[in-house]
């Protein structure tokens, strides 16, 4: 079963998203920041999709995705970024890193669910 990696330093958001997705019969792995997310992805080949926050301590979400594409050479895993703001440089990097979905906070659970279903197909 395809696993989903939820990366967010806020336990509130992380737990809420993870719980919501689990309720909807999705297999969820959580990570507390980019570094954690990177190692989780290294150790788990079942992860097919990442839902990640942008701003996080240790390693931000975009850097994590760039490392996944670069260091791990993983170009297949789809990424949905959760964000509160946007800048041209952020968009530029996101595009280069092949990020398909952007969800602006605050969001509704079913929006995330729908986007996940769309990107898991």
């Amino acid at each position: 079963m395809a696993q989903i990696l939820v990366v967010d330093d806020s336990s509130t958001v992380r737990d809420a998203v993870a719980e919501f997705l689990r309720k909807n019969n999705l297999d969820v792995v959580v990570a507390v920041d980019g570094k954690d997310g990177l190692s989780k992805l290294k150790n788990d080949s079942g992860i097919k999709l990442i839902v990640s926050d942008v701003n996080m301590p240790n390693m931000d979400g975009l850097t994590m995705v760039e490392k996944i594409r670069g260091e791990l050479g993983n170009t297949s895993v789809n990424v949905i970024m959760l964000t509160t703001e946007s800048s041209p440089s952020l968009k530029e990097r996101g595009k280069a890193a092949g990020i398909k979905g952007w969800i602006v906070k605050p969001f509704k659970g079913d929006v995330v669910l729908e986007s996940i279903k769309k990107l898991l197909v």
């Binding site: 964000t83 509160t84 703001e85 946007s86 800048s87 041209p88 952020l90 968009k91 595009k95 398909k100 979905g101 952007w102 969800i103 602006v104 906070k105 605050p106 969001f107 509704k108 929006v111 729908e114 986007s115 769309k118």
Partner: peptide, 25 residues
């Protein structure tokens, strides 16, 4: 306002699903 701005950025030149996901903001 920052949400509206972020939504615009999240949608323009991205897949149309992003509009669907974010337009409620």
């Amino acid at each position: 306002l920052s949400q509206v701005e972020a939504v615009a950025a999240a949608c323009i030149s991205e897949d149309q699903m992003n509009f669907k996901f974010n337009s409620h903001l």
